[in-house]
Simulated assay, not measured.
Amino acid sequence: MTSTTSKRPYAEVIGDPINQSKSPVIHGFWLDKLGIDADYKIAHIKPEQLVDYITSRREDPDWQGCNVTIPHKLAVLDLVDDPGGVKDSIGAMNTIIRGEDGKLIGTNTDAGGFYTPLSNSDLAGADICVIGNGGAARAILFALSRLDVDDVYIMARNPLKSIGLLSQFGLKGGCVQMDAEVPPVQLLVNASPLGMKGAKETLDIDLTPLPDGAIVYDIVYNPLITPLLEQAKSRGLNVIDGLGMLIGQADLAFELFFGKPAPRKYDKELRKLLAK
């Protein structure tokens, strides 16, 4: 487990693997723009180290919280306080903050971050397919359950888990096996790590069934233009890359960590920095 000491307030991102994370770049950029005397770091935490990590950070008064990425979004549910009922609603946490009384509070900024790039899209009555049924997919399904969408399909290897998620979020639709044809939906979202740089498996999906004007949204941001998005662009479909959700969820977490809104007026400069 990475050992972190600091004489200044700091937050960090935890995961396994973690070197691909761009969160330190985002938060560091905003801290610099606002002139805040604080740090944002990386901590490589393996599953067997998670309990000890939470204990050590709980005892560190300089620690303001952390972003949580794969594979810990479900495991942290039982390790922190949950006053917002995230466990019973979304069922996954991607952010932990230090409360005023020293308690560690878990929340989820993925749902809001996912919706931000779609805020100008008309999804009323749309059919949607979500690839994956892990922690990120839970936040996305929660967000979709708040919109006036029609059928939602989950493409994953475990149909029973997918059926349970659709029921949990009150969504109608169905399950699709990973090797099946993608449904002719208006929005396709890759909520899995497939396609991420260094991933052991690729995402092999034919987008031919998608109608003209469909949106293909890949939450993977390393590489920024994934093979899925390359295929979508070659067909002339609308694409949303992973930076949209990444910056959106970071925006919400930044204010929780450091007490000031993120300076979003610098988004173009930030995207250029992240795309390097």
Rank of each mutant, 00 (worst) to 15 (best):
M1W: 00
K7Q: 09
K7R: 14
P9H: 02
Y10N: 13
I14N: 04
D16W: 13
D16E: 11
I18Y: 08
I18A: 10
N19P: 02
V25A: 12
H27N: 06
D32I: 04
L34I: 05
L34N: 06
G35I: 08
I36M: 05
A38C: 08
D39C: 08
Y40Q: 10
H44Y: 11
I45V: 15
K46R: 13
P47R: 00
L50R: 02
L50V: 10
L50I: 10
R57D: 01
D60W: 05
W63H: 10
Q64W: 01
N67R: 03
T69P: 14
K73I: 06
K73Y: 10
A75Q: 08
A75W: 01
D78V: 06
L79F: 04
V80F: 05
D82Q: 07
V86F: 00
M93R: 01
M93W: 04
N94D: 07
I97E: 05
G102E: 02
K103R: 14
K103I: 03
L104K: 10
I105L: 11
G106Y: 03
T107E: 12
A111P: 09
G112L: 08
G112M: 03
F114I: 08
Y115C: 07
T116K: 02
T116Y: 00
P117K: 01
L118P: 09
S119G: 02
S119A: 14
N120R: 11
S121V: 11
A124Q: 13
D127R: 13
C129L: 12
V130E: 15
G134W: 03
A137L: 02
R138C: 09
A139K: 02
L141R: 09
A143T: 08
S145E: 04
S145M: 06
D148V: 05
D148K: 05
V149I: 11
V149F: 03
V152K: 14
M155C: 12
P159K: 01
L160P: 00
L160G: 00
S162N: 06
L165F: 05
L165S: 01
L166Y: 03
Q168I: 00
G170R: 09
G174H: 08
G174K: 12
V176A: 02
V176D: 10
V176Y: 05
A180S: 15
E181W: 00
P184V: 01
L187V: 05
L188T: 06
K197Q: 12
K200T: 08
E201G: 01
I205W: 04
D206G: 06
T208S: 11
P209Y: 06
P211M: 04
P211H: 07
G213L: 02
A214D: 07
A214T: 06
I219A: 07
Y221G: 12
N222E: 15
P223G: 07
L224Q: 12
L224D: 07
A232M: 14
K233H: 09
R235V: 13
L237A: 08
V239A: 14
V239T: 15
V239Y: 03
V239E: 07
I240W: 01
D241H: 08
L243V: 04
G244L: 10
M245G: 14
I247G: 10
Q249H: 03
A250H: 02
A250V: 02
D251A: 13
F254D: 07
L256W: 09
L256D: 15
L256R: 14
F257H: 13
K265C: 14
Y266W: 14
D267C: 14
D267F: 09
L273F: 01
K276Q: 12
K276D: 05
K276S: 07
